[in-house]
Design a protein around this nucleic acid. Structure first.
Lengths: 133, 133
DNA sequence: TATTGTTATACTCTATAACTATA
DNA sequence: TATAGTTATAGAGTATAACAATA
Protein backbone atom coordinates (compact mmCIF):
# COMPACT_ATOMS: atom_id res chain seq x y z
CA UNK A 1 0.00 0.00 0.00
CA UNK A 2 2.68 2.50 1.02
CA UNK A 3 4.65 1.21 -1.91
CA UNK A 4 1.86 1.84 -4.37
CA UNK A 5 0.99 5.25 -3.00
CA UNK A 6 4.64 6.12 -3.40
CA UNK A 7 4.73 4.93 -7.02
CA UNK A 8 1.67 6.93 -7.99
CA UNK A 9 2.98 9.95 -6.15
CA UNK A 10 6.39 9.64 -7.82
CA UNK A 11 4.78 9.39 -11.25
CA UNK A 12 2.69 12.48 -10.62
CA UNK A 13 5.58 14.42 -9.08
CA UNK A 14 8.04 13.58 -11.85
CA UNK A 15 5.64 14.42 -14.65
CA UNK A 16 4.63 17.60 -12.88
CA UNK A 17 8.22 18.75 -12.29
CA UNK A 18 9.15 18.12 -15.90
CA UNK A 19 6.17 19.99 -17.34
CA UNK A 20 6.52 22.95 -14.99
CA UNK A 21 10.05 23.58 -16.23
CA UNK A 22 8.51 25.01 -19.40
CA UNK A 23 7.16 27.85 -17.27
CA UNK A 24 10.37 28.26 -15.28
CA UNK A 25 8.61 26.85 -12.22
CA UNK A 26 9.91 24.25 -9.82
CA UNK A 27 7.36 22.00 -8.11
CA UNK A 28 7.41 24.08 -4.93
CA UNK A 29 6.88 27.31 -6.88
CA UNK A 30 3.51 26.36 -8.30
CA UNK A 31 1.46 26.25 -5.09
CA UNK A 32 3.04 29.54 -3.96
CA UNK A 33 2.07 31.38 -7.12
CA UNK A 34 -1.36 29.81 -7.01
CA UNK A 35 -1.95 30.91 -3.42
CA UNK A 36 -0.83 34.47 -4.15
CA UNK A 37 -3.06 34.69 -7.22
CA UNK A 38 -6.09 33.36 -5.37
CA UNK A 39 -5.44 35.28 -2.14
CA UNK A 40 -4.36 38.80 -3.08
CA UNK A 41 -2.48 40.51 -0.26
CA UNK A 42 -1.38 37.26 1.39
CA UNK A 43 1.93 37.58 3.27
CA UNK A 44 4.94 35.31 3.00
CA UNK A 45 4.33 34.33 6.61
CA UNK A 46 0.84 33.14 5.74
CA UNK A 47 2.16 31.30 2.71
CA UNK A 48 4.67 29.45 4.86
CA UNK A 49 2.00 28.50 7.39
CA UNK A 50 -0.41 27.30 4.71
CA UNK A 51 2.23 25.22 2.97
CA UNK A 52 3.70 24.00 6.28
CA UNK A 53 7.14 25.27 5.43
CA UNK A 54 9.51 27.55 7.30
CA UNK A 55 9.14 31.29 6.51
CA UNK A 56 12.77 31.56 5.50
CA UNK A 57 12.14 29.17 2.65
CA UNK A 58 9.57 31.51 1.12
CA UNK A 59 12.05 34.35 0.65
CA UNK A 60 13.83 32.97 -2.39
CA UNK A 61 10.66 31.85 -4.13
CA UNK A 62 8.83 35.12 -3.58
CA UNK A 63 11.85 37.23 -4.54
CA UNK A 64 12.29 35.26 -7.76
CA UNK A 65 8.62 35.84 -8.62
CA UNK A 66 9.06 39.55 -8.01
CA UNK A 67 12.19 39.72 -10.17
CA UNK A 68 10.32 37.97 -12.96
CA UNK A 69 7.47 40.46 -12.67
CA UNK A 70 4.96 37.76 -11.73
CA UNK A 71 4.02 39.36 -8.42
CA UNK A 72 4.33 42.72 -6.66
CA UNK A 73 4.91 43.44 -2.97
CA UNK A 74 2.88 46.14 -1.22
CA UNK A 75 3.81 47.27 2.27
CA UNK A 76 0.63 47.12 4.36
CA UNK A 77 -0.62 50.31 6.02
CA UNK A 78 -1.99 48.75 9.19
CA UNK A 79 1.10 46.64 9.86
CA UNK A 80 4.14 48.15 8.22
CA UNK A 81 6.18 44.99 8.86
CA UNK A 82 4.00 42.95 6.53
CA UNK A 83 4.28 42.77 2.73
CA UNK A 84 1.07 41.95 0.92
CA UNK A 85 1.72 39.89 -2.21
CA UNK A 86 -0.28 40.37 -5.40
CA UNK A 87 -0.04 38.51 -8.70
CA UNK A 88 0.52 40.75 -11.71
CA UNK A 89 -1.26 40.29 -15.01
CA UNK A 90 1.79 38.36 -16.23
CA UNK A 91 1.74 36.23 -13.08
CA UNK A 92 -1.91 35.37 -13.48
CA UNK A 93 -1.39 34.53 -17.14
CA UNK A 94 1.54 32.26 -16.35
CA UNK A 95 -0.40 30.56 -13.59
CA UNK A 96 -3.35 29.99 -15.89
CA UNK A 97 -1.15 28.24 -18.45
CA UNK A 98 0.73 26.27 -15.80
CA UNK A 99 -2.52 25.17 -14.19
CA UNK A 100 -3.79 23.91 -17.52
CA UNK A 101 -0.63 21.85 -17.93
CA UNK A 102 -0.91 20.58 -14.36
CA UNK A 103 -4.41 19.35 -15.13
CA UNK A 104 -3.07 17.57 -18.18
CA UNK A 105 -0.53 15.70 -16.06
CA UNK A 106 -3.32 14.59 -13.74
CA UNK A 107 -5.46 13.57 -16.68
CA UNK A 108 -2.68 11.45 -18.13
CA UNK A 109 -2.16 9.58 -14.89
CA UNK A 110 -5.90 9.23 -14.45
CA UNK A 111 -6.37 7.89 -17.97
CA UNK A 112 -5.78 4.36 -16.69
CA UNK A 113 -9.18 4.49 -14.99
CA UNK A 114 -12.71 5.33 -16.03
CA UNK A 115 -14.20 8.63 -14.79
CA UNK A 116 -16.24 6.72 -12.21
CA UNK A 117 -13.19 4.84 -10.97
CA UNK A 118 -11.25 8.08 -10.70
CA UNK A 119 -13.98 9.58 -8.59
CA UNK A 120 -13.97 6.51 -6.40
CA UNK A 121 -10.18 6.61 -6.03
CA UNK A 122 -10.32 10.28 -5.11
CA UNK A 123 -13.01 9.66 -2.50
CA UNK A 124 -11.05 6.80 -0.93
CA UNK A 125 -7.86 8.86 -0.82
CA UNK A 126 -9.67 11.73 0.84
CA UNK A 127 -10.99 9.41 3.53
CA UNK A 128 -7.52 7.95 4.12
CA UNK A 129 -5.82 11.37 4.20
CA UNK A 130 -5.23 12.78 7.69
CA UNK A 131 -8.16 14.80 9.03
CA UNK A 132 -6.38 17.87 10.32
CA UNK A 133 -3.19 18.42 8.28
CA UNK B 1 -5.99 14.17 -7.03
CA UNK B 2 -2.26 14.92 -6.97
CA UNK B 3 -2.94 16.88 -3.83
CA UNK B 4 -4.65 13.96 -2.14
CA UNK B 5 -2.07 11.40 -3.22
CA UNK B 6 0.54 13.71 -1.76
CA UNK B 7 -1.30 14.02 1.55
CA UNK B 8 -1.69 10.26 1.94
CA UNK B 9 1.92 9.73 0.94
CA UNK B 10 3.11 12.38 3.38
CA UNK B 11 1.13 10.82 6.20
CA UNK B 12 2.55 7.39 5.47
CA UNK B 13 6.10 8.67 5.03
CA UNK B 14 6.10 10.80 8.18
CA UNK B 15 4.66 8.06 10.35
CA UNK B 16 7.05 5.55 8.87
CA UNK B 17 10.12 7.76 9.37
CA UNK B 18 9.18 8.48 12.97
CA UNK B 19 8.60 4.83 13.87
CA UNK B 20 11.74 3.58 12.15
CA UNK B 21 13.88 5.87 14.31
CA UNK B 22 13.31 3.44 17.15
CA UNK B 23 15.34 0.90 15.20
CA UNK B 24 17.98 3.40 14.14
CA UNK B 25 16.70 3.21 10.57
CA UNK B 26 16.02 6.07 8.21
CA UNK B 27 13.27 5.61 5.62
CA UNK B 28 15.77 4.73 2.88
CA UNK B 29 17.49 2.14 5.10
CA UNK B 30 14.48 -0.11 5.47
CA UNK B 31 14.11 -1.34 1.89
CA UNK B 32 17.88 -1.95 1.69
CA UNK B 33 17.94 -4.15 4.76
CA UNK B 34 14.82 -5.92 3.58
CA UNK B 35 16.30 -6.65 0.15
CA UNK B 36 19.52 -7.99 1.67
CA UNK B 37 17.64 -10.23 4.09
CA UNK B 38 15.40 -11.62 1.37
CA UNK B 39 18.13 -11.92 -1.28
CA UNK B 40 21.24 -13.30 0.42
CA UNK B 41 24.35 -12.51 -1.58
CA UNK B 42 22.87 -9.50 -3.37
CA UNK B 43 25.48 -6.89 -4.30
CA UNK B 44 25.31 -3.16 -3.65
CA UNK B 45 25.16 -2.67 -7.40
CA UNK B 46 22.04 -4.80 -7.60
CA UNK B 47 20.55 -2.98 -4.64
CA UNK B 48 21.08 0.37 -6.36
CA UNK B 49 19.51 -0.90 -9.59
CA UNK B 50 16.50 -2.36 -7.81
CA UNK B 51 15.89 0.79 -5.79
CA UNK B 52 16.62 3.03 -8.79
CA UNK B 53 19.33 4.92 -6.94
CA UNK B 54 22.96 5.62 -7.81
CA UNK B 55 25.45 2.98 -6.57
CA UNK B 56 27.43 5.60 -4.65
CA UNK B 57 24.43 6.21 -2.45
CA UNK B 58 24.42 2.61 -1.26
CA UNK B 59 27.90 2.82 0.23
CA UNK B 60 27.03 4.72 3.38
CA UNK B 61 23.91 2.68 4.08
CA UNK B 62 25.60 -0.68 3.59
CA UNK B 63 28.69 0.34 5.58
CA UNK B 64 26.54 1.53 8.47
CA UNK B 65 24.71 -1.83 8.47
CA UNK B 66 28.03 -3.64 8.54
CA UNK B 67 29.35 -1.51 11.41
CA UNK B 68 26.18 -2.23 13.38
CA UNK B 69 26.61 -5.95 12.76
CA UNK B 70 23.34 -6.19 10.84
CA UNK B 71 24.95 -7.54 7.68
CA UNK B 72 28.22 -9.14 6.56
CA UNK B 73 30.08 -8.72 3.27
CA UNK B 74 31.52 -11.77 1.53
CA UNK B 75 33.88 -11.35 -1.43
CA UNK B 76 32.55 -13.54 -4.24
CA UNK B 77 34.81 -16.27 -5.63
CA UNK B 78 33.70 -16.07 -9.26
CA UNK B 79 33.97 -12.28 -9.47
CA UNK B 80 36.38 -10.94 -6.88
CA UNK B 81 35.20 -7.37 -7.48
CA UNK B 82 31.74 -8.12 -6.13
CA UNK B 83 30.75 -8.21 -2.47
CA UNK B 84 27.82 -10.45 -1.61
CA UNK B 85 25.74 -9.05 1.24
CA UNK B 86 24.14 -11.25 3.87
CA UNK B 87 21.94 -10.30 6.82
CA UNK B 88 23.21 -11.52 10.17
CA UNK B 89 20.96 -13.00 12.84
CA UNK B 90 20.84 -9.57 14.46
CA UNK B 91 19.99 -7.99 11.11
CA UNK B 92 17.15 -10.41 10.45
CA UNK B 93 15.80 -9.87 13.96
CA UNK B 94 15.87 -6.09 13.59
CA UNK B 95 14.19 -6.32 10.20
CA UNK B 96 11.48 -8.57 11.60
CA UNK B 97 10.67 -6.03 14.33
CA UNK B 98 10.88 -3.08 11.97
CA UNK B 99 8.64 -4.83 9.46
CA UNK B 100 6.04 -5.43 12.14
CA UNK B 101 6.09 -1.74 13.00
CA UNK B 102 5.88 -0.80 9.33
CA UNK B 103 2.77 -2.92 8.97
CA UNK B 104 1.30 -1.12 11.98
CA UNK B 105 1.81 2.24 10.30
CA UNK B 106 0.01 0.99 7.21
CA UNK B 107 -2.77 -0.45 9.34
CA UNK B 108 -3.27 2.85 11.12
CA UNK B 109 -3.58 4.77 7.88
CA UNK B 110 -5.82 2.09 6.43
CA UNK B 111 -8.07 2.08 9.49
CA UNK B 112 -10.19 4.81 7.93
CA UNK B 113 -11.51 2.29 5.43
CA UNK B 114 -13.09 -1.13 5.59
CA UNK B 115 -11.01 -4.11 4.47
CA UNK B 116 -12.95 -4.25 1.21
CA UNK B 117 -12.42 -0.56 0.58
CA UNK B 118 -8.70 -0.94 1.28
CA UNK B 119 -8.48 -3.73 -1.26
CA UNK B 120 -10.33 -1.57 -3.75
CA UNK B 121 -8.03 1.40 -3.10
CA UNK B 122 -4.99 -0.79 -3.52
CA UNK B 123 -6.28 -2.19 -6.81
CA UNK B 124 -7.04 1.27 -8.17
CA UNK B 125 -3.60 2.57 -7.15
CA UNK B 126 -1.93 -0.36 -8.86
CA UNK B 127 -3.78 0.36 -12.07
CA UNK B 128 -2.84 4.05 -11.94
CA UNK B 129 0.81 3.32 -11.12
CA UNK B 130 3.16 3.39 -14.12
CA UNK B 131 3.47 0.06 -15.89
CA UNK B 132 7.23 -0.24 -16.21
CA UNK B 133 8.98 1.79 -13.48
C1' DT C 1 8.36 41.47 24.35
C1' DA C 2 6.52 39.49 20.13
C1' DT C 3 6.21 39.31 15.14
C1' DT C 4 7.60 40.06 9.82
C1' DG C 5 10.82 39.51 6.67
C1' DT C 6 15.38 38.30 6.08
C1' DT C 7 20.29 36.29 6.18
C1' DA C 8 23.40 32.78 7.21
C1' DT C 9 23.95 28.22 7.92
C1' DA C 10 23.35 23.12 8.36
C1' DC C 11 21.43 18.76 7.31
C1' DT C 12 19.37 15.21 4.31
C1' DC C 13 18.81 13.09 0.00
C1' DT C 14 20.35 12.12 -4.31
C1' DA C 15 23.21 13.03 -8.43
C1' DT C 16 27.76 13.18 -11.20
C1' DA C 17 32.72 12.40 -11.85
C1' DA C 18 36.76 10.13 -11.07
C1' DC C 19 39.56 6.60 -8.75
C1' DT C 20 41.10 1.23 -7.62
C1' DA C 21 40.90 -3.40 -8.32
C1' DT C 22 39.36 -6.67 -10.76
C1' DA C 23 37.48 -8.72 -15.18
C1' DT D 1 37.83 -1.81 -22.33
C1' DA D 2 34.26 -2.49 -19.00
C1' DT D 3 32.45 -3.33 -14.32
C1' DA D 4 32.10 -3.34 -8.74
C1' DG D 5 32.86 -0.66 -5.07
C1' DT D 6 34.30 3.60 -3.48
C1' DT D 7 35.45 8.68 -2.69
C1' DA D 8 34.69 13.41 -3.27
C1' DT D 9 31.68 16.73 -4.43
C1' DA D 10 27.54 19.32 -5.94
C1' DG D 11 22.73 20.43 -6.11
C1' DA D 12 17.94 20.46 -4.41
C1' DG D 13 14.93 20.97 -0.54
C1' DT D 14 14.01 22.14 4.00
C1' DA D 15 15.39 23.12 8.84
C1' DT D 16 17.26 26.23 12.79
C1' DA D 17 19.25 30.53 14.71
C1' DA D 18 19.82 35.23 14.85
C1' DC D 19 19.07 40.03 13.20
C1' DA D 20 16.61 44.78 11.92
C1' DA D 21 12.30 47.03 11.60
C1' DT D 22 7.95 47.34 13.46
C1' DA D 23 4.23 46.22 16.65
Amino acid sequence: MGYNVRRVWAALADGFAERMQVYGLRPADYPVLSLIAHNPGITSRQLAATLRVQPSNMVGIVDAFERRGLIAKHRQAMDRRALGLHATVAGRRLLRDAARTARQVEAEVASALSPEENQLLLALLQRVAPRDA
